[in-house]
Design a protein around this nucleic acid. Structure first.
Lengths: 155, 155
DNA sequence: TGATTCGTGGGGAAAAGTGGGGGAATGTGG
DNA sequence: CCACATTCCCCCACTTTTCCCCACGAATCA
C-alpha cells in the first residue's frame, strides 16, 4: 500500500539484509511479497539451490512453468537427469506464515551456508538468498566488469 | 509547477552539490525533476549502482525498457545471471516525496560511499550520484584526456 | 523589499522486521 | 495404540525504519 497503486512492481528488484532467527525463519522483504502474489491468497513459493552457492526462490506459478518445460523435453539424457536431480531434488515448497516469513529447511540452510545474516537479492522473475561473503564474491566489481565486457554485444 | 514555460528539458545535464540528511534523504536538483517526468504525477525513478562506484538513477520508463530487454534474453546464461544480480540486485525503485527528495537505502549509500555531501551529475538519459573524491578521480583531467584520445575515431 | 522557489531539517504516525511463548500437528519408540 | 519429543505455525510485543507533514532560511526575481 502506501506505495501508490502503481502496479508496475511485477519483478523482484534490490537487495535486503534480513536475519534468520533461531527457529530458521526469515521474513521475506515486503517489496518481494508484493511481487510474489499480488492478491489476498496465501503466497506460495518454491525454494531450491543454485550452483553458485545460494538459494533461489520462485513464485509457485513460475516454478510450475519450469516443471512443465522440463517434463516436456524430448529425451531424457544423463545431463538432464543430473540437472533435475539437482534442481528438483533440492526443491522445497511452502507458504509464508502470517508474519510474512518462510522456514528454510536445514539442508538448504547448510547448502547455502546461511547463518544469522542473509541477503535477499531480486533478479526479475525470482529472487535469491545469499550468505554475505559469497554474495560479495559473486558480485564483486572485478567480476562484473569482466562479465559486462562479454555481454556488451547483447545490448 | 513553476516554470512550465513551454518546452521540456529532455536530458539530464550538469552537476549539483546537495546534502544527504541524517535520515538518508537527498533532494533531487530541480532541473532534474523537470527532466524526470513531465507532468504532475508522482515522479518515479529507479536507482542502482555502477561498477565505477557511484549510483545511477533512471526515470521509471527508461528502466522498464532495460528490464524488458534483459528479460527477453536466454536466462540460463551464467554471465547474464551475474550481470542481473548486479544491476537488478542493487536496484531500488521509489518516488519523490513532496519536497522532491528520495530516500537512498542504506546498502546503496554504503556501496557508493556517500556521506553528507553528494554530487549529482547529469549524463543525458540518466544521472549519477557520487561521493566527491570518487567523482574527482573518475573525471580527472588526465583520465579524461587519455580517454578522449581513444574515442577520437568515433566523432 | 516583499513574494516565490528551492534546499534542508525534524516530529510523529505507520509500517516493516525481529524475537519469543505456547498450542497444534507430526513422527518416533515403546 | 499410547506417551513423548520434535517441528511447525499461530499470536503478541518490541524496535527500527520509512514516509508523510510542516516549518525555517537562503537565494532569486520582480
Amino acid at each position: 500500500m502506501g506505495k501508490s497503486g502503481g502496479m508496475w512492481m511485477s519483478f523482484f528488484r534490490g537487495r535486503y539484509l534480513h536475519s534468520l532467527d533461531a527457529k530458521g525463519r526469515v521474513a521475506i522483504p515486503q517489496r518481494f511479497r508484493e511481487a510474489l502474489g499480488g492478491g489476498e491468497e496465501a503466497l506460495r513459493l518454491v525454494m531450491t539451490v543454485d550452483p553458485e552457492g545460494c538459494l533461489v526462490v520462485y513464485p509457485e506459478a513460475v516454478w510450475r512453468d519450469l516443471e512443465r518445460k522440463w517434463e516436456s523435453l524430448p529425451q531424457m539424457n544423463d545431463e538432464l537427469k543430473t540437472y533435475l536431480r539437482f534442481m528438483v531434488g533440492w526443491a522445497s515448497d511452502g507458504a509464508l506464515d502470517r508474519q510474512g516469513r518462510i522456514l528454510v529447511p536445514p539442508p538448504l540452510r547448510d547448502y547455502a551456508g546461511l547463518e544469522h545474516e542473509v541477503w535477499f537479492v531480486g533478479v526479475l522473475q525470482n529472487f535469491e538468498i545469499w550468505n554475505g561473503e559469497r554474495l560479495e564474491k559473486a558480485t564483486g566489481r572485478d567480476r562484473v566488469q569482466s562479465v559486462t565486457q562479454k555481454l556488451s554485444g547483447l545490448f
